[in-house]
Design a protein around this nucleic acid. Structure first.
Lengths: 203, 203
DNA sequence: TGCTTATATCACCGCACAGTGACACTGAGT
DNA sequence: ACTCAGTGTCACTGTGCGGTGATATAAGCA
């Protein structure tokens, strides 16, 4: 058995990820993480100070929503503003759908505050805003609001679908449904922008 | 000290409501409920069988989102379909914003399954669909999807705002912001319908 | 080799939890 | 007055938790 603190730390961090994904955030704790990592729990205290410290390190070092960054890479290439907005939302949904870890973290964030959830929320936001800011796009407020609502809606839809409990029978994990939802998002964005530009903005 | 089992049951059910509202669903348990109700926990087992049974009774007997039904009462009076859809969403948001209990139950529902959360979700859905069905309105699928997304988006926005952790700085508990969000929902619905009727439906 | 320090293990504490069995009280019918 | 079912109280078990001190073991260096 090697005796490297770095390796032990990694084992602990990996165990935390596995545990959150498998058992949900309500199942994490010093004992459970130590058990999963096959490591004495005192090492968690030694290396991370406390459970909170461990979560902090986890937030700092792990990729909390793998694939999200890549999907937002070239999102603004040759597209109109409504298309870009819709793409951001849909890409976000896709990354979230693929990452049970991110889903669980979002639920955690809704339930209680901890270093992990707070940092996670901020990171998600920054990523999307950056995709726009890179192109010098500063959306007006109503556009921002609509995009956020769509983003939140999709997010919630995905979270609800996790325990065989889909919202209004809309199961985003089913490819057909996903297509329909994505199309509605796109056409809604488009319609909203067209109504705005036509000076048809509702009072 | 009166010795009525009905009264004791009520004390326990009330304590559960207080506890969920005050401490969140992670804080509920046989001991905590008994303590809050100032009652021996053995009575919970006697009258409800178990914690699960208590939750079941709670779901059956309590109004889980007070005010929601009233807000949806005359929602279809003299309004166009997009207006109705927007009203459903906004009314739902208003009721949810006012009910910390309902907010907590929604979070609970996202996290784990129990008799309470399952029943709660179904009830919310039925309520909104009923508001439409009463008028013989059967929305087409894309309309339904858009409405649900908006509904989910608003819901998520409200849930996120609870712990001083608003999504993208959109704090629905602030009156001004709430107005803006509601207006965006209304104008989006309108724009979506107009685009549809104009045969301008995006492929 | 022997020494030091980092690393890992073990045993333990106090606490809160879910759940149960035995007992005491109260009140209504006889 | 007596019974008895319903109601409430108490004490207890076993389990898992967060957290800590003492101790063993391996690695690096003189």
């Amino acid at each position: 058995m090697s005796r490297s603190s770095e390796q032990t730390k990694k084992k602990i961090l990996d165990a935390l990820e596995i545990l959150i994904t498998r058992e949900g955030f309500t199942g994490v704790g010093v004992n459970a993480v130590a058990r999963e990592a096959a490591v004495d729990k005192v090492l968690i205290y030694r290396y991370f100070g406390s459970m909170e410290g461990l979560l902090q390190s986890f937030a700092d070092e792990k990729d909390l929503c793998p694939g999200a960054a890549a999907l937002l890479e070239n999102i603004t290439d040759g597209a109109s503003l409504p298309e870009i907005a819709a793409r951001i939302v849909v890409s976000h949904g896709m990354a979230l759908q693929r990452s049970p870890l991110a889903q669980e973290l979002l639920c955690w964030e809704l339930t209680e505050q901890n270093p992990l959830s707070i940092l996670f929320g901020k990171e998600m936001e920054k990523r999307e805003l950056k995709a726009l800011a890179d192109k010098g796009i500063v959306p007006e407020e109503d556009v921002k609001i609509l995009t956020v609502i769509m983003l939140c809606g999709l997010q919630y839809l995905i979270l609800r679908g996790r325990n065989d409990n889909p919202m209004m029978n809309i199961d985003y994990s089913v490819a057909e449904t996903r297509d329909k939802v994505d199309k509605v998002i796109q056409s809604t964005m488009k319609a909203f922008f067209e109504a705005r530009e036509g000076g048809n903005n509702a009072s």
